[in-house]
Amino acid sequence: MATINMPRVFIPPPMRPLTAGEEVVEVAGANIAQVIENLEQRFPGMKERLCQDDALRPGLSVAVGDSVATLGMLQRTGPDVEIHFLPAIGGG
């Protein structure tokens, strides 16, 4: 039977003390909200750094795969996808 891999979360350098230095962790979650909840379970303190009032912190964006997630916490993930927390980008 094929193994279904969980989303892979890339941990920003300032948060790596919370993961004992791990740069990439596999975390279950059908959407970003669930991924963050599960991150918090494994690495307490994560949620406070990523969220404010159950939304992503202002100025923070999340990329699922190669695309910036337009639905924020509600963005669907999927097996094997990469998740990156990045500065929000505007433009001129």
Binding site: I11, P12, P13, P14, M15, G45, E48, R49, L50, L60, F85, L86, P87
Partner: peptide, 22 residues
């Protein structure tokens, strides 16, 4: 910073508003 710990309440103000590291 992205994912940084919140500043302590008694910390001093600074002109460095954001710090990023990749």
């Amino acid at each position: 910073s992205v994912g940084s710990a919140p500043a302590a309440k008694d910390s001093k103000p600074t002109n460095i508003a954001k710090h990023f590291l990749f």
